[in-house]
Design a binder for these strands. Sequence first.
DNA 1: GCTGAAATAGCACGACTGTGCTATCTAAGT
DNA 2: ACTTAGATAGCACAGTCGTGCTATTTCAGC
Lengths: 193, 193
Amino acid sequence: MPIVVDPEERRRDLAEAVWRVVRRDGLERASVREVAREAGVSMGSLRHYFGSQSELLIFAMRMVIERIEERVASLPRSEDPRQDAERVLSELLPLDHQRQMENEVWLAFTARSLVDPALRALRDEAYDALRAACRRWISRLLPPGRSELEVETDRLFALLDGLAVHAAMRPVEASPERLLAVLNYHLDGVTAA
Amino acid sequence: MPIVVDPEERRRDLAEAVWRVVRRDGLERASVREVAREAGVSMGSLRHYFGSQSELLIFAMRMVIERIEERVASLPRSEDPRQDAERVLSELLPLDHQRQMENEVWLAFTARSLVDPALRALRDEAYDALRAACRRWISRLLPPGRSELEVETDRLFALLDGLAVHAAMRPVEASPERLLAVLNYHLDGVTAA
DNA sequence: GCTGAAATAGCACGACTGTGCTATCTAAGT
DNA sequence: ACTTAGATAGCACAGTCGTGCTATTTCAGC
């Protein structure tokens, strides 16, 4: 059994090839041939690791989610909710190269999830988790006695996604500095509500 | 010259066929054949009105923008900026069938605009106009003496797009009522800042 | 060295694609 | 009635697609 490299690592390499193709040419160009070419591998070899194109794309999309979850989970926490909220939520913004890549790939996948049931489940799972996170931070930040938990959650949730979309569409205008400025301004507004 | 119907009207019909295909099967399925089939027209006939697929898709995307602009332009105005802001900005939310259709189609086009230069120009044009509109409303709503025009503009701009994305992804959770509630809550926060 | 399973390679098929092209049909202007 | 240009139709080509399939290579365990 010639196990030179961990098969799972190989699958991750191939999924990253998917990312590069998706970012460069779009999800509609992420054909089996093109991904194999990008990864420097034959079609047959790719199909050895992924039984179908659908499986490959689902894996690549799931890996985006996992990468982000890992980074968020490894973030340090303090005693200050406001500081922690900023740290965690800004981690979700595309503030550096890696996150910009993931953001654009995620956008492509979510767009397809509108018409692809297989991707829809993954997208819903991620969106549910993200909204739950927003809800938790809002509940910590909202001054006691306020009853706007749900509407503030929806607002923060939408704001994050909107900022991500704008970062992908207009990377020059929606610079990391401005994304952060909007997030912090918003969080200040919530805490002082 | 047998002009039974206005050629431009025919082009609009075909563009609406594009919308239906895009919403049902995604932009990647909006092939010349499929759109012709959806419109009940032969390939050759479609190509008579659009010299290329690219031209067809660009026209269909531009028509989304124009429809929205027309509806916003025909909105009544009052003397109350807060009321007008709500009326105009809520017009941009996918609150009914027609706008939900346009929203999903728009999402598909913007996703492709990330990798298609021909669509990018259109998308930038629309985004510039939308941000300018946000800026105008913010400048009218923001209490005198406040200096947060730009960050409030970015925030409203992102919020609108985020709400639209969520409406497309989770139409049940992001219902028209909740979209409106978030918008109104936000506008109230801006005016009372 | 030999074995055998994992890994890699790549051909073949049928389906679909955009577009160039020609042919036919329709109806307005004369 | 005839002409003619617009409108409609659809075939043909070259290309890409996903996937089933077989052949070859690689290398750990013996």
